[in-house]
């Protein structure tokens, strides 16, 4: 295991977890709103935001799948060492990390069951940038409408049709996070 994998955890876990959670919760409760999240120093190319989400949310009860540029030994070791999560194939993942391209097809992830719609995967999508412009979002958490730079619209429209089943998304770049739960309606 490389030394890199042993470093980069939260310096004060109870406090940093709490602060990171509030950022993630605000993002998910207000789709489109871009929040600051930091504290983790994960190995590249994992962003600070994605690393902080992983430290705050993942443990031995949440299998994680990695794809694309994030499927590296160092990132794998970093996640296992700091969270105890198992690295698994996409169909078994509770959290999945990748770029929009590497996460496709979305149909490989669990969307929950009619009795347990919560047994679904949450995708952490690493982006080049996040801007409050682009697709128009409406639905719970949004007063009138919000704008967010999404990689596309069709997949999110299809996902919303599955409600109450479906996937939930966090978008990360640098120290920024935004989110899109299954309830959000997306338009061009």
């Amino acid at each position: 295991m490389q030394v890199q994998a042993l470093e980069g955890a939260f310096a004060n876990a109870p406090i940093e977890n709490a602060v990171a959670f509030r950022a993630a919760m605000n993002a998910l409760a207000r789709p489109g709103q871009i929040e600051k999240i930091s504290g983790a120093k994960p190995p590249a190319p994992l962003s600070v935001a994605a690393g902080s989400l992983i430290l705050m949310l993942c443990d031995s009860e949440t299998p994680v799948s990695l794809s694309g540029p994030f499927e590296t030994a160092v990132i794998r070791d970093w996640i296992i060492f700091h969270t105890g999560a198992q690295i698994v194939t996409p169909d078994k993942a509770v959290f999945a990390i990748g770029t929009w391209q590497s996460l496709a097809p979305l149909s490989q992830f669990a969307i929950g069951t009619a009795q347990y719609p919560d047994r679904s995967a949450t995708l952490i999508v690493e982006c080049d940038e996040l801007k409050p412009q682009g697709a128009t979002l409406t639905g719970p958490g949004i007063k009138d409408a919000a704008q967010l730079s999404l990689p596309e619209t069709q997949s999110f429209q299809d996902n919303a049709k599955l409600f109450p089943l479906g996937l939930d998304f966090f978008f990360t770049t640098g120290t920024q996070v935004a989110a899109l739960p299954r309830t959000t309606k997306v338009d061009h």
């Binding site: 876990a13 109870p14 406090i15 977890n17 709490a18 959670f21 993630a24 919760m25 998910l28 409760a29 705050m56 949310l57 993942c58 443990d59 009860e61 949440t62 347990y116 719609p117 919560d118 949450t122 719970p140 958490g141 409600f163 109450p164 939930d168 739960p181 299954r182 309830t183």
Partner: peptide, 29 residues
């Protein structure tokens, strides 16, 4: 620990809260 609960427990609760927000009105075990 800060706010009494251990970090593992809070993490489990936080995941449930996020699921709850994603599926409004659904009771997350």
């Amino acid at each position: 620990n800060f706010a009494y609960l251990d970090e593992q427990t809070k993490r489990m609760i936080r995941r449930a809260i996020l699921k709850g927000l994603a599926i409004p009105g659904y009771q997350v075990p």
